[in-house]
Design a protein around this nucleic acid. Structure first.
Lengths: 173, 173
DNA sequence: CTACTTAGTTGTGAATTACAACTTTCTGGT
DNA sequence: ACCAGAAAGTTGTAATTCACAACTAAGTAG
């Protein structure tokens, strides 16, 4: 269907990891035969780790808050509805995420100049500092948590994740 | 008003991996530079798709129920605490997942013969049928949702996911 | 035999999210 | 210019999920 290619893997990747997957004395390959199980489990582990690392920041414990904050930091004047689309959440949910960020003093709402219905979101000074810290934390997790992936494979893995994500979003449309 | 309102990309624009990742007119590579963002987003999409596919089954809408059901089906007499360890959830949470399965008539509790404190879980006839359907649904999702990954890359992708999962669990111990 | 640990349950509260309904504003067709 | 419908955002509400604390019952170690 798609025409993009992925570089072949190196030999070292194929050598490891042939041991059966065992947890609590149970071989769980029954479950683990599926992409979905790994992705869902990985999400759980990654999210929990990220929550711990963000513990001192007010964007902790939210899948949406981090994304929203970084988007506002990057795109001054961005609208809630745009954030909702990226987050794949409805507007009420997105609105409450924004509420939390506003309440924390990280961003502020203004009326959009072009469209009086819409809001334009802007980062505050404090929010910008938080965003900076968030990026550091993410980078730190990246370095410490994914260090077992060889640098050259890291790119391959990332590309696969990106392709998976794009294709899945496309299928949902 | 610094946001550029570029029209959405067409499907053909998305066929190359090197395309910048654009959503709602925003280039989101700021967020997407990290494994964690992809994994978390993928989880969201995969889980929602799975919920839809499982809609007719009583294990729908739960990350834990599917795993628990398949474990009991595979390992008659398994204990709740073992399931909790696989799920990485605490015992109260796991207990309530089991409650739901018992209430639905998919599994039943017995006292463990060796340890009177523990329970031994067994699949019911109905539960076994549900498990069969669950496996079919998962396989179907696998086929329909991950069809964009070439067969040889599929193995590689799976291996990477598995390795990531194992390493992350290890780091959490 | 006492103290500690383990398995499981119940109570409770916090957080997340979706759906419905509403107001305000914009847009298109006539 | 007007009216119908769409779009942006908010509020209400309800369901779901999950963790922490406290509890009972049963096993274990000294």
């Amino acid at each position: 269907m798609t025409t993009d290619r992925t570089p072949p893997m190196t030999d070292t990747d194929r050598t490891h990891d042939e041991e059966p997957l065992t947890l609590a004395g149970l071989q769980i390959d029954v479950l683990a035969g599926a992409f979905s199980w790994y992705i869902r489990s990985l999400d759980f582990v990654v999210s929990r780790d990220l929550d711990q690392r963000m513990g001192h920041l007010d964007v902790a414990k939210g899948k949406g808050k981090i994304t929203a904050l970084l988007l506002v930091d990057r795109y001054p004047g961005v609208r809630p509805s745009q954030i909702a689309e990226v987050l794949m959440r409805d507007r009420p949910t997105t609105g409450r995420i924004i509420d939390a960020l506003v309440k924390a003093g990280d961003i502020r709402r203004e009326a959009d100049a072009d469209d009086q219905r819409a809001h334009a979101l802007f980062i505050t000074e404090r929010g910008h500092e938080v965003a900076e810290q968030v990026r550091n934390v993410i980078q730190l997790q990246e370095d410490e948590f994914f260090d077992f992936i060889e640098p050259e494979d890291r790119e391959v893995f990332m590309r696969m994740l990106k392709r998976a994500y794009l294709n899945m979003r496309k299928k949902l449309e």
